[in-house]
Simulated assay, not measured.
Amino acid sequence: MITIDGEVVKEPKAILRDGMELVYHRLRWREPDAPYLLQVLYEDDDMIAVNKPAGLQVLPGGLFQQRTVLMQLQWRASKGSPSLETHGSHPVPVHRLGRGTSGILLCAKTKVAKTSLAAFFAEGTSLIGDSSNTNMEQSKRRKISKIYRALVNGILKQDKIIIKQPIGTARYPGVAKGLYVASASGKPALSKVEVLERDSQLNQTLVQVEIESGRPHQIRIHLSFIGHPLLGDPLYDVGGQPMCFDSEHEDESFAEDGYKCISVYVAVDGLVFHFIIFFPPH
């Protein structure tokens, strides 16, 4: 399945040299269904803002290689779409939204715009954990604010809550680099939660969350940490920890966007086999 300059590689320790062409002839697979319509909300010579639908991944990874925002932007630009007139450059996202999250996604059309927008997103996160008055004032003047809405389990009693729980990583089946969880030894993170509506009959609360930092899965982790996980979240449970945890198993292809899993041990003729079974989000 791997060739170098057209010849099948039979020696795993073959040395690559400058100018060689290495090709991986991967087996075909069918990517899971995903939304493909991107609504353009704003555009100028430097950037474009699109409305990312839930279910669409931003960057290629795991099971999704073609059905992503990045590939759609590149495909439209190559087709000369009037709404993505980039003079030969391809728009690229400068931040991420989770696959299950819908909302505004900013994409840069030039290198200068990419550098500037990335710096704007990073500046708020860099100030978290520093309580100096100077940094607090700088935080109030951030050029980009990130505000989300979420539906959570249970009824929040307080109208406004500030969550400062640090977020770190822990070993988890399916994520070789570790899964992000609530951790006292993690990096500083800050979320401002405001109740918009309470539904006592369904035992749900609609909240607005402004995140001062930008840690991965921050909203999911912070809300579950205070005892109110997102409605339907297949991964995080009360306390900001995953529903299924097994530190002895790693597999790169699962759990990045929230897969339920169960551990099964089966004994056959004196041998014990350990299976990790994943259930994709509904």
Rank of each mutant, 00 (worst) to 15 (best):
F245D: 10
I221M: 04
S213D: 01
G129F: 11
T3R: 14
A118P: 08
K143G: 04
P91T: 06
I276H: 05
E197M: 11
P60T: 02
Y236P: 04
R99K: 13
T134E: 15
H25F: 12
Y236V: 06
G174F: 01
A14S: 11
Q241C: 02
L22S: 12
M20I: 03
E194V: 09
G88H: 03
T169A: 07
S253L: 15
D233V: 04
T115P: 04
H25N: 09
V94A: 00
N135R: 12
G154K: 03
S183V: 05
I163R: 00
T110E: 08
I161D: 00
R17E: 13
I211S: 07
E248T: 12
F273R: 08
H25A: 08
H274Y: 00
Q204R: 06
S116H: 10
L63W: 11
V181L: 05
T169F: 03
K13C: 08
I104S: 09
L190C: 13
G214L: 02
S185M: 09
I226M: 02
Q204I: 01
Q208I: 08
C107E: 00
G240C: 05
S247A: 15
L117I: 12
V209G: 02
L37D: 14
P93C: 07
Q204H: 06
A122T: 05
L73A: 09
T101N: 03
D233L: 01
L117M: 11
L84A: 03
K109G: 02
G62D: 05
R171V: 10
N153L: 05
G124T: 02
R142F: 09
I163S: 01
I147L: 11
Q208C: 04
Q138C: 13
I221R: 12
G80M: 12
D269W: 04
I128P: 05
K157M: 13
A150F: 07
I167G: 06
P216C: 01
P82G: 10
I163T: 10
T115G: 07
S89I: 04
P53Y: 09
R220C: 04
D18T: 14
V209E: 10
G88E: 00
I48L: 11
P32I: 03
A122R: 10
V112S: 11
A184C: 07
S89C: 07
P234Q: 01
S213Y: 02
A176Q: 13
G214R: 00
H228S: 06
A170Y: 01
K109I: 07
Y259Q: 11
N153G: 08
I15Y: 04
P281R: 08
P93S: 06
G61Y: 12
A182P: 03
D269V: 03
T3Q: 14
T68G: 09
I163V: 15
F278Y: 15
L202M: 14
V92F: 07
K160E: 15
R99I: 09
V92R: 06
G240F: 03
